[in-house]
């Protein structure tokens, strides 16, 4: 059963296991440093579909099916699927999983969705409400550009602070504790933070305050220090947001995370040679990095304790046009390697 410690953190006392995980990506992700670790890479932005939205749904479905197959579970074994994405009404995920016949909970957390779905699925398993639950999310560069920005072929320039939405999806299958698998040991559902950033091309800056708050809340609730973790991994702050996060945690909370911090938006692409400006973003970015690179390293023992903090900018194309500031959120999931035999 989940046990509340401190003000916001839930300890998942049964240590639910991530028995299956998979990450799939597109062309740009396949050219990045993690290409070898992806379970599947699509070599076509449309993935053989007639629209980018359909392509995103297919990518989402692919991630869920691969995670289930690696977990050795069939769709009928799954009690709930928690899924979401960036598209209006979350059609990227719902259309992808519509024929799976699994009870579905739609979740919107913008780019923080992986941490949110992972938290909910794990809480359900830990509390006994589910024996097996799936958490999944996806994003597609082209469908996101269409919805949030300008047509793809429009000849404009992007600012150096802009981030590149990953064409990727990730899925985790959570079940009761088994040995030698990555576990979800604790979760923290974050609070909305808004320090007045309005620039939709600088989401890293908009989201850094939420990440700083969530990290410091988690450390304070669990009475731990950054050095107690092998990695504090934020989801998609990119270059600008990561720098601001370190500055904020030090200034506001007196915590120096620089020695253990990394960011999914910086890991997924080759920041020197790929044209991705401030780094990766989109739900699929942290979802695919966590469900490939991080889970693999937790499983093989190279990583022992990872605090995964996915961040989301809770804006819409309309709110940006209306000059609103960008409220942001960050959720934390403590991933551990589980005991070894």
């Amino acid at each position: 059963m989940p046990e509340r410690i401190g003000k916001n953190t839930l300890l998942l006392t049964s240590n639910p296991s991530v028995i299956g995980f998979a990450g799939v990506g597109g062309i740009t992700e396949g050219e990045g440093p993690l290409s070898e670790e992806f379970d599947y890479l699509f070599d076509d932005d449309e993935a053989g579909q007639s629209s980018f939205e359909k392509a995103e749904s297919l990518i989402h479905k692919e991630a869920v099916e691969r995670a289930l197959s690696k977990a050795g579970k069939s769709k009928s074994d799954v009690d709930y699927i928690f899924a979401g994405d960036l598209l209006n009404q979350c059609t990227g995920s719902t259309f992808g999983i519509r024929n799976m016949n699994i009870p579905y909970v739609g979740v919107y957390g913008a780019c923080s969705t992986m941490a949110l779905t992972l938290s909910l699925a794990s809480i359900f398993v830990d509390s006994g409400a589910a024996n097996c639950a799936v958490a999944s999310t996806s994003s597609h560069f082209c469908s996101a550009e269409r919805q949030f920005r300008l047509p793809l072929e429009y000849g404009g320039q992007r600012t150096p602070t802009a981030q590149h939405t990953a064409t990727a999806a990730g899925a985790s299958v959570i079940s009761s504790h088994v040995k030698n698998t990555p576990c979800v040991s604790a979760v923290l559902i974050g609070k909305i933070r808004d320090l007045g950033i309005k620039d939709a091309n600088n989401m890293g800056a908009a989201m850094a305050p939420a990440a700083a708050q969530t990290i410091s809340d988690f450390l304070s609730d669990t009475n731990t220090k950054p050095e107690d973790y092998d990695l504090i991994l934020t989801g998609d702050l990119g270059k600008v947001g990561s720098a601001l996060l370190k500055e904020l945690t030090e200034k506001d909370f007196g915590v120096d995370i620089s020695s253990v911090h990394n960011d999914c938006g910086l890991l997924i692409y080759d920041m020197e040679n790929q044209d991705v400006h401030a780094g990766g973003s989109g739900c699929g970015c942290s979802a695919s990095v966590v469900n490939t690179h991080v889970m693999n390293n937790l499983k093989n023992g190279k990583l022992g304790k990872v605090l995964f903090v996915a961040t989301g900018a809770l804006l819409s194309a309309t709110s940006t046009l209306q000059g609103e500031t960008i409220p942001s959120i960050a959720h934390a999931v403590l991933l551990t390697g589980g005991e070894r035999e």
Partner: peptide, 25 residues
């Protein structure tokens, strides 16, 4: 002391690189 929106605006501006004006021109 929590960073205020005004202070953060300054921090964010400092941390955010500008577009390279001269090469762009």
């Amino acid at each position: 002391m929590a960073t205020t929106g005004k202070e953060y605006g300054k921090m964010a501006k400092k941390a955010s690189p500008d577009s390279p004006l001269i090469p762009d021109c």
